[in-house]
Computed example of a mutant assay.
Amino acid sequence: MARHSGGTGTEHLTVEREGATLILTLNRPEAKNALSLAMLVGLYDAWLAADADDTVRSVVITGSGGSFCAGMDLKALAAGGGMAGEHYRDRMKADPDLHWKAMLRHHRPRKPVVAAVEGYCVAGGTEILQGTDIRVAGRGATFGLFEVRRGLFPIGGSTVRLPRQIPRTHALEMLLTGRPYTADEAERIGLVGRVVPDGAALDTALGIAERINACGPLAVEAVKAAVYETAEMTEAEGLAAELERGRPIFETADAKEGALAFAEKRDPVYRRA
């Protein structure tokens, strides 16, 4: 499937479109895609664009140059230079919460987000990962929350999210030791869902996204919303909320199209209606 530009992006965030999938590439390879203001602004704008465009059915996030994201640029911070991309400072001042939305701490995209990880996915990279829905990693990928080793706190949401996503003993070991984790370890503890040969993470993620894109978009978005909104409910509350989300889907034209296409032995044509 042909790939083409999917939006403006920034110098540190490339936005492309492949079919119904928006591909976001963290693009600062000389710094292992360490966070910059340009990257954060690009991510924030891209999440909003994906939510607003009904022709986008999924998002894949990845990194360039063989790494996903190495988190904060500690060398720049140590040198007193702050984050790269000061010409975006006005955007940050206009919305002081922008960086947290960009990193998926204070924003949950409406569309499914698939992460394709190669190389370093540490500190802020592992924190962004926790805001994604489906995660694929190359076998040589490295994960971890290194903040305590530098006397820092993983304030991107990890002390809250990680123990809810993986067993608490594994979450606390990752948080309190600051040690690196291999892709195989990350899969074993449930941080990622698939480990594939190095260099294959993006193609695998795009394949997953294509399967999602073939499904009814209203159903997909309702299912994702139900999973997250019921996560902290009691079982009774969750089941009631699931019915509220799920019942209206059966009345849609897409639901009727899905059944008709099955009966006629053809691919469904969904219209978000």
Results as ranks from 00 to 15, higher is better:
M1P: 09
R3G: 10
G7E: 09
G9I: 04
G9T: 00
E11A: 13
H12A: 00
L13Y: 01
T14S: 10
E16A: 12
R17A: 12
G19E: 04
T21V: 11
N27L: 00
R28M: 01
A31L: 14
K32H: 04
N33P: 03
L35R: 03
V41R: 15
D45Y: 05
D45K: 13
A46W: 07
L48W: 05
L48F: 12
D51W: 07
D51L: 04
A52P: 05
D54S: 13
D54N: 11
T55H: 08
R57V: 08
V59A: 05
I61F: 02
T62G: 00
G63K: 02
G65A: 06
A70W: 08
A70D: 11
A76K: 07
D90K: 11
D90A: 15
R91F: 06
K93W: 04
A94Q: 06
A94Y: 03
L98N: 05
L98T: 03
R105V: 11
A116G: 03
T126K: 03
Q130G: 05
G140K: 01
T142D: 02
G144S: 01
G144V: 00
R149D: 07
G151V: 05
I155S: 12
G157N: 07
P167V: 00
A171P: 08
L175V: 04
L176A: 10
G178M: 11
Y181M: 15
I189S: 06
G190S: 10
L191G: 03
R194Y: 14
V196L: 04
A200G: 02
A201R: 00
A205I: 01
A209K: 04
R211F: 08
G216T: 12
L218Y: 06
V220Q: 07
E221K: 05
E221C: 10
K224W: 12
Y228T: 02
E232M: 12
G238Y: 05
A241W: 10
E242H: 10
L243C: 06
R245C: 09
R247F: 11
F250M: 09
F250S: 10
E251P: 02
A253V: 13
A253K: 14
A255R: 12
A255G: 09
K256S: 14
K256E: 14
A261Y: 01
F262E: 11
R271E: 15
